[in-house]
């Protein structure tokens, strides 16, 4: 045990490990906050679709050799999020079909572009790290960390400020509209926040595993807690703890960071599932 602690403190001296922990905590906190709303609104899979769009945008940014690829990834992902979340009921291609179409389409185009207009000597490494987040969190630049801190603060501020409105829209959109809440604006806000979280989370766990950060903490918390507030707080706590455990295990054992965090989330879900059964006496 002292050896492990010594090794952890040795690794914590590296700036890129400190960056990874800061970004890991912030991203998992933000994703879990909105995760509860997305799960309850039956939009669990939206994170997956949007992360694939972000991957496609990243490929285009690489081909265009943009110095700051966020300038393209963020607007494209936000635009698609608005299209999927705000026009869902009136669109000609509805709900899950639209998500599936956008998801696989963006993934295919992204991979195609990366192959045709390769700007790197190691395409498989780039694809592996972007899709599965094998090491991307440990290769962040200082400016990317600052951007993540600013965007995370905005997301948390918006969530706290509009908590009551988000709560109303989550459970009964028609009731919210009847009580004078401008649901279009708040659905738009949720779409923008979700897109920002997805883009941030892509660095942490990779494009294919983003949904896990959104879905698992919320579902784990729902096994044991019942009110919206307690579920949100529990989901945020579970998500942050799982991310920290995942990052530490990954750097100690040399496992891929993204999948290790998701594995920690799965274990937490299993634990909370059992706690939920024990509490309800098997019902």
């Amino acid at each position: 045990m002292p050896e492990i602690i010594e090794k952890i403190s040795f690794y914590l001296d590296f700036p890129f490990v400190q960056y990874a922990i800061i970004v890991g905590v912030l991203v998992s906190l933000c994703s879990s906050l909105l995760g509860v709303t997305l799960v309850l609104k039956r939009y669990s899979y939206i994170g997956d679709g949007l992360s694939h769009v972000a991957f496609g945008a990243l490929a285009i940014a690489s081909v265009l050799k943009l110095t700051n690829n966020m300038l393209l990834i963020l607007p494209v992902t936000i635009a698609v999020a608005i299209l999927l979340l705000c026009t869902g009921k009136n669109a000609r291609i509805k709900g899950d079909a639209a998500v599936a179409m956008v998801s696989v389409g963006a993934l295919a185009i992204g991979y195609l572009l990366m192959n045709i207009f390769s700007t790197s000597a190691n395409i498989s490494g780039d694809v592996c790290t972007t899709l599965f987040g094998s090491t991307s969190i440990l290769t962040l630049k200082a400016e990317e960390v600052y951007l993540c801190i600013v965007l995370s603060c905005i997301v948390i501020f918006c969530f706290v400020l509009f908590y009551n409105k988000i709560f109303t829209i989550t459970f009964d959109e028609n009731f919210a509209r009847a009580t004078g809440v401008n649901t279009t604006i708040f659905n738009l806000l949720i779409a923008v926040i979700v897109a920002v979280i997805i883009v941030l989370a892509m660095n942490l766990v990779g494009a294919l595993l983003v949904s896990a950060l959104v879905v698992f903490p919320a579902l784990s918390a729902m096994r044991t807690f019942k009110s919206f507030f307690s579920v949100t707080i529990a989901a945020a706590t579970i998500s942050v703890i799982c991310s920290l455990i995942g990052i530490v295990i990954a750097i100690l054992a040399g496992t891929p960071v993204g999948s290790t965090i998701v594995a920690a989330d799965i274990v937490a879900f299993g634990l909370f599932y059992l706690i939920g059964i024990a509490r309800n006496g098997g019902n």
């Binding site: 590296f14 890129f16 090491t135 440990l138 290769t139 100690l252 040399g254 496992t255």
Partner: peptide, 17 residues
Amino acid sequence: TRMSGTMVYAQVYQMVM
């Protein structure tokens, strides 16, 4: 040689960048 595979990747990445 004291680092895990993930840390080596990240450290060499820093050295190259």
